[in-house]
Amino acid sequence: MGELSELQRDALGELFNLGVGRAARSLSQMVQDEILLSAPAIDLVRANEVIKTLLGTEFKELSLVTMDFEGPFASKAILLFPERNALLIVSNLLAPDLTPEEVSEFEQEAMCEIGNVILNACMSALADEFGVEFRGGLPEHYFSDSQALQLFVSDDQRMVLLLRIHLSMDQQRIHGQLILLLSIDSFQALCTQLDAYLARLSVG
């Protein structure tokens, strides 16, 4: 329990790359500039390890967008950009004359929308490939560590899928994380979906 087979991991990786590919096309069209997105690595950890393993010292400067999804499995999806560079890129998209601090203060809805586009694209790719339906709530944006910390409780036993996300535009490249928080039950439901998907693939 609480493991992903090599095959499941590869399949998930491919599905999310499909999703971020869609997101990149949407974002590029929105800002009329080429944006590339890739999700090269996927990891599975416990929620209470997230803060330790992932956030570390970069945790002070981050911007994150969360959305709740319900369907065959329920999940809180979080898109997190831990670096100041992330805000810099967003400020490139929005208003080049703004400092990153101003961006996070003034442009929470825009941060929400960028996260919204990326997360919806990933979930709709999953929905298409699994042949299922998710109901997605509206995105919320957090940009201070204390607010964000409340997303993870200390004895949290939920499973977390961690996807590293690379976003490049204008020769700049930034790294973010896509986090899928899943209860044990939801994680198992996801594995069931994955197995069914893999079975269909091998039959077809």
Binding site: M30, V31, A110, C112, E113, N116, N120, S124, F134, G136
Partner: peptide, 24 residues
């Protein structure tokens, strides 16, 4: 446009969208 896709995503995938004035 982004609004068109957002509606499409809501009808077809049951997903929500926000359109921010800074981007649209």
């Amino acid at each position: 446009d982004r609004l068109g896709w957002g509606i499409e995503e809501a009808l077809r995938y049951r997903l929500s969208s926000v359109l921010a004035p800074a981007l649209n």
